[in-house]
Every structure is written in C-alpha cells, then in structure tokens.
C-alpha cells in the first residue's frame, strides 16, 4: 500500500500512542489539521490494508508477572521446519514462532518464545515442545531474558516523515 503524506503525518503522531480523551481521533486530527471523519476514514483504510494490525495495548509482559521469558532456537533441517513450526504453534504456551536465516555465528533457523512466571516450568515446556515437534537431538539453545531496555517500538514513521521534511527544506521551491 502506498502511503500519502497525510497518512504518514497521522502515523507519525500515533507512534506516541492514542490520546486518552473521549474523542481521541478528533484530538489526533487537531494536531495535524484533519477533522475527525478524515482521521477515522484514513485509519480504517490502514487497518483494512493491514498496515495497522489493531489498536490496543502494547503490554510489558514482565509487569504482568511473566518474568521468565525464553527465546528457544533450534537448527532444523530445512525440509522439516514447516512441520515443526506447525506443531510448535499449536502448543498453548508458545507465543511466537519464526523461521530466520542462519548466520555462520548463529546457525539456528527455528525460533519460538515461551513466556512464563517461573523458569522451571518454562524449561519443562521447552522440553515438551522439543519432543512434540520431534526436535530431540538437534542443536538447541534456550536464552532467558534478563532485562528489557527499550520496548517502545521503533520510530519508523516519524523517521520517514522527518526525512521527507528535510528533503523538502533542502529543495525550496521544488
């Protein structure tokens, strides 16, 4: 989907979150010269296009008591990755599952996340997942998180908007 400069303006403002007022879309519009109806129409279109997945909460799992957060990686033969991922996704405790490119320094291609309150049940779930997906004996690593420094989301749209503004400033009259 092609974003217009007005979409970009709106998305850049939304990176700070939705204003917590009775009419948040009107408030947002007030900050970028649009009326409420235009803001709603643009955001609905962005939702339909999948650019916005949903409006809601970005949770900090640790604060909910999910302190044992494990990233589990395996090196799975390419022909078996898809089936293994399908099995992992069906497990109720697996929260994310990705296939990534292997790197010479990190030769793993299947990743999943398991969030739990305590480490030992999470480790049991790692074993259960390994068995269920038939990944016993394959190279595996379990990395628990110790701290989260930054969970703000990248400043993606404001970066693009600012670079467009700079380009416009550098080319007056263009």
């Amino acid at each position: 989907m092609e974003l217009s400069p007005r979409d970009l303006e709106l998305l850049a403002l939304l990176e700070d979150g939705l204003p917590l007022v009775p009419r948040p879309y009107a408030a947002l519009g007030g900050r970028c010269g649009m009326d409420e109806a235009e803001v709603i129409a643009r955001l609905r279109r962005l939702l339909e296009a999948g650019v916005i997945r949903r409006f809601g909460l970005i949770l900090r799992h640790r604060r909910l008591g999910y302190r044992a957060n494990a990233m589990v990686v395996w090196d799975v033969p390419d022909v078996r990755v898809r089936e293994a991922a399908r099995i992992l996704c069906a497990l109720p405790f697996v929260t994310l599952c990705y296939r990534r490119r292997r790197h010479p320094a990190w030769p793993y291609n299947l990743y999943c996340m398991i969030h739990g309150r305590e480490r030992s049940p999470v480790l049991e779930q790692v074993d259960e997942a390994t068995r269920a997906a038939g990944l016993e004996g394959l190279p595996r690593q379990v990395l628990f998180s110790r701290r989260c420094f930054k969970q703000t989301g990248a400043r993606y749209f404001s970066t693009i908007r600012n670079s467009l503004r700079e380009a416009a400033d550098a080319a007056p009259g263009a």
Binding site: G17, L18, I52, F55, L57, I58, R60, Q151, G153
Partner: peptide, 8 residues
C-alpha cells in the same frame, strides 16, 4: 503498558 495505540 508501554504504549496505547496501533500495532503496525
């Protein structure tokens, strides 16, 4: 919450 708003 870290943010209340859209997931892109």
């Amino acid at each position: 919450l870290t943010r209340f708003g859209p997931m892109f």
